[in-house]
Simulated assay, not measured.
Amino acid sequence: MAILADADVLGHFFSLITTTLPMLPMSPQEQNEQRRGQRLLFVSLLFAVLLNFPLLAVFNHQGLVWDIPVLYLYVLVAWAALVLLTGWLVKR
């Protein structure tokens, strides 16, 4: 019962804060920084998916491209794309 009472108090406290404090408008620079952060988060999630098991399993076979195993080439190209895309987003 005490846990429920604490949750009610915290909920009431946060509702007071959110209703009494006005949201300040963001400057264009702050908006750009927020968008950049969102894009970098998307890029990191994209590459977490690209370098995860299901896609790695697709490229894990005995084939060679320019005498380089396909899996190694895939990881190298994905990593290079991550570095280039992240650099481009940060400079932009």
Rank of each mutant, 00 (worst) to 15 (best):
L71F: 03
L71E: 04
I17C: 03
D6L: 08
K91T: 01
D8V: 10
Q31L: 14
M23Y: 05
L45Q: 08
L24G: 00
A81H: 03
T86M: 04
H61N: 15
N52L: 01
L41A: 13
L89E: 00
L21G: 00
A78D: 13
G63V: 03
V65Q: 05
L85Y: 06
V75Q: 10
F47Y: 15
Y72Q: 12
N32Y: 04
L51V: 00
L24V: 01
D67C: 12
V83E: 07
Y72R: 08
T86G: 02
R92G: 15
A5R: 09
L55T: 04
T86K: 05
G37D: 10
G63C: 02
Y74C: 11
P25N: 11
A80C: 09
A2D: 09
Q29T: 12
L16F: 00
L82F: 15
A81N: 08
F59G: 07
A48D: 05
A78K: 14
R39Y: 08
A7F: 00
I68T: 13
W79N: 14
L73A: 10
L51P: 00
Q38H: 07
V58G: 04
V77W: 10
A81G: 14
V43C: 07
V58E: 05
D6I: 07
P25E: 14
A81I: 03
P25A: 13
L45N: 10
